[in-house]
Design a protein around this nucleic acid. Structure first.
Length: 637
RNA sequence: GGCCCCAUAGUUCAAGGGAUAGAAUGGAAGUUUCCUAAACUUUAGAUCCAGGUUCGAGUCCUGGUGGGGCUACCA
């Protein structure tokens, strides 16, 4: 099914069990030794999520142990359970169903957990590793096309993964490599020179990247027409494509560009600047950022040196026409061109160069490339070429290949105009958020500014969550109708729950028995100091412990306890989807609790305060988790 | 043609080799003198086919069927 991320072992996150699970595991190993006289590997002790309808907080799978106990699964589980109760504090009882040992933790275990962790800003944020950095490339746009839905997935994934890795203590460098040169860029230049009439973003009122993109489209339109008229005169499609005057002009412009023709360079810079300004706006709206932006026009010559060295050492070979190749047949691939007959570099040459450059600049433990799965072959080749050349960058290179975004009517095809534009999409989402919110009459007392901020938060939350909740590796279907839905498993649903919690806390504060320190909600992965919702009861009962925990409270605590482990796992698998699904589960559970259990209306002050603390902690984890997805949550909506 | 990926309710997604395969949406039926109904409850509904490995398979292996991607001196 899915490719396991074995290659990611370098991350050394590995231990994907919670602290309690680790303790249980160790104790189980002791139990097996004590009871059955066998020393077993800790990995043999597996955990399973405790099913909801079964009582228990942790579940040990004992099937693998029966060969050591030589007893029935039930008997084995029972004996180990007895041993655990005697030897591991915090376990109050256990139940055995088949080969599953369901451990029930004491209530004080859960209270201790709640009160030690919920005010701790670093909950779910792991300390910095004194390790080599990670370089993460994402976005990588093309200056002749505005960003579309596919880029949105790329950008959201890349940015979220950077946050997740940071939460796991990694030093992450986010880089962007802009494709700003090549024959396709020259097409836009040609079109502008022919038909542009000096149009600018200001004069046309168009966003820069869209303006540039429109000339690319214009070129393609005329080019197709020319090809059509040539095929009408008896040429084949291929002949016509090569013989058309327009493509000739574009090729000429490329030659001039490479020869540093001042006029061409000037126009090229002008149009690229328009595109960059447009991209910046889109990135800002998306909420993504980079530590460093590379331009292919600066890097495209890199790699030639590597190829030259490879040729000299005999690893590469040249053909009669002067082109340079690598033979990867032993590696199960093909022969691959690395330098053209005319000595110019191809995509691969350039990527070899940037890989080395990056490696030398950062000395990273890993270089992650967030690039669509249509380039699996390219990265396979890249890694193998580097390896064959004996370049250490090869070992650190990892292609995070994500699936394509498809539309209900099929694939997006930019040439046919079948694309969803990033800016349009974001605008629509925000607008829908506005309409829905106004319809529900939620913000009648909001200022215009506050409302606008909320609509943006909700619209973008919906979009981001819709995309990030899906396993990155999988192709996904983007149905605009569904994406704009704010009910069910959606971003706004989660935001709404957070808002309700904040509303509870605010009211609790107003009643006077609670003090709430509301700090600014910042990027918590980076700046763990800013924790809002620290609850300070005025009474001497700092840690109210009601006599019993009801099932929904226990379930919420159980989920909260899992959060750091989920962050780890998401870091290991480079999957924001794990965070998204976790937060959803937590929110669903909380909503049930909210619906069925009184909080402010509770008369027992111990229960009331405990539930407020539980709510505050839940709210904080919702916010942290969503922050890792790049999604903000409101206090009111 | 060769190589790679995918296949789970009508639909879109979950499920570390482990319990009765979970959600959402859509369908049906309910919940508001009460902390925000963008919520909650109940209900019907699924592992493409055929073999194999295993105490145990949606998950691993083989073969089929159906979809997608790659296979440029494009990037």
């Amino acid at each position: 099914m899915h490719v396991k991320f074995i290659e990611l072992n370098y991350l050394c996150i590995h231990n994907l069990n919670s602290i309690m699970e680790q303790k249980i595991r160790e104790c189980c190993v002791d139990a097996v030794k004590e009871l059955f006289g066998e020393k077993i590997a800790p990995e043999l002790i597996g955990f399973e999520k405790t099913k909801k309808e079964i009582e228990g907080d942790f579940t040990v799978v004992v099937f693998p142990l029966v060969r050591y106990s030589r007893k029935s699964p039930e008997q084995t589980a029972t004996e180990i359970g007895d041993y655990l109760i005697k030897n591991l504090p915090g376990i109050s009882s256990f139940g055995v169903i088949k080969g599953f040992l369901n451990l029930v933790m004491t209530e004080s275990f859960w209270f201790d957990f709640l009160y030690t962790e919920f005010g701790d800003p670093s909950f779910g944020v792991f300390p910095a590793r004194n390790d080599k950095p990670v370089v993460l490339e994402y976005s990588s746009p093309n200056t002749n096309k505005p960003l579309h839905l596919g880029h949105i997935r790329n950008n959201l994934l890349g940015y979220s993964i950077s946050l997740i890795l940071e939460a796991n203590g990694f030093d992450v460098h986010k880089v962007n490599l802009v494709n700003d040169r090549g024959i396709h860029i020259c097409k836009s230049l040609v079109a502008y020179m022919k038909w542009g009439k000096g149009e600018t973003p200001e004069s046309s009122g168009m966003k820069g990247d869209h303006l540039v993109g429109s000339y690319y489209v214009l070129f393609e339109k005329h080019y197709r027409e020319e090809i059509q008229s040539l095929t009408g005169k008896g040429m084949t499609e291929d002949e016509a494509a090569g013989a058309a005057d327009l493509i000739g002009e574009a090729q000429e412009v490329l030659r001039q560009w490479e020869a540093k023709d001042p006029d061409i360079l000037h126009l090229w810079r002008t149009m690229n600047d328009w595109a960059y300004q447009g991209f910046d706006t889109t990135y800002k709206q998306l909420g993504v950022e980079f530590d460093k932006v590379y331009y292919e026009s600066d890097t495209y010559l890199l790699g030639k040196q590597l190829v030259q060295e490879g040729l000299e050492s005999g690893i590469l070979y040249s053909k009669a026409d002067g082109s340079i190749w690598i033979d990867l047949q032993e590696e199960g691939l093909d022969e691959k061109l690395l330098l053209r007959t005319d000595g110019t570099s191809v995509y691969m040459t350039q990527d070899l160069g940037t890989a080395e450059q990056r490696f030398e600049t950062y000395h990273p433990s890993r270089m992650i490339y967030v690039v669509g799965n249509e380039q699996l072959y390219h990265f396979d080749v890249l890694k193998k070429v580097l390896k064959k050349l004996g370049n250490p960058a090869s070992e650190t290179l990892f292609h995070l290949s994500y699936g394509m975004v498809e539309l209900p009517e099929g694939k997006m095809k930019s040439r046919e105009g079948k694309v969803i534009d990033a800016d349009d999409l974001m605008d629509e989402m925000v607008q829908t958020a506005e309409e829905t919110t106004l319809e529900l009459g939620k913000v009648d007392d909001f200022s215009a500014e506050k409302s606008a901020a909320l609509f943006y938060m909700i619209g973008m939350g919906a979009l981001k969550y819709f995309i990030l909740k899906i396993d990155p590796k999988r192709n996904m279907l983007f149905d605009p109708k569904e994406s704009i839905d704010f009910n069910g498993n959606t971003g706004p649903f989660i935001q709404y729950t957070h808002a309700r919690i904040q509303s509870l806390l605010k009211k609790a504060k107003e009643t006077g028995s609670w003090m709430l320190d509301a700090g600014p909600a910042k990027r918590e992965t980076r700046n763990a100091k800013s924790e809002s919702s620290i609850l300070k009861p005025e009474s001497s009962t700092l840690e109210p412990r009601p006599s019993t925990l009801i099932p929904s409270e226990r379930e919420i605590l159980r989920l909260l306890y899992q959060y750091p482990t989920v962050v780890k796992q998401a870091g290991e698998e480079l999957s924001p989807a794990l965070i998204a699904n976790y937060v959803y589960e937590l929110v669903k559970e909380y909503n049930q609790f909210y619906q069925e259990v009184p909080v402010l209306r509770e008369e027992d002050p111990k229960k009331l305060r405990f539930r407020l603390a539980l709510s505050a902690f839940t709210g904080s984890v919702i916010r942290k988790g969503m922050a890792l997805l790049g999604i903000a949550v409101p206090d009111r909506m």
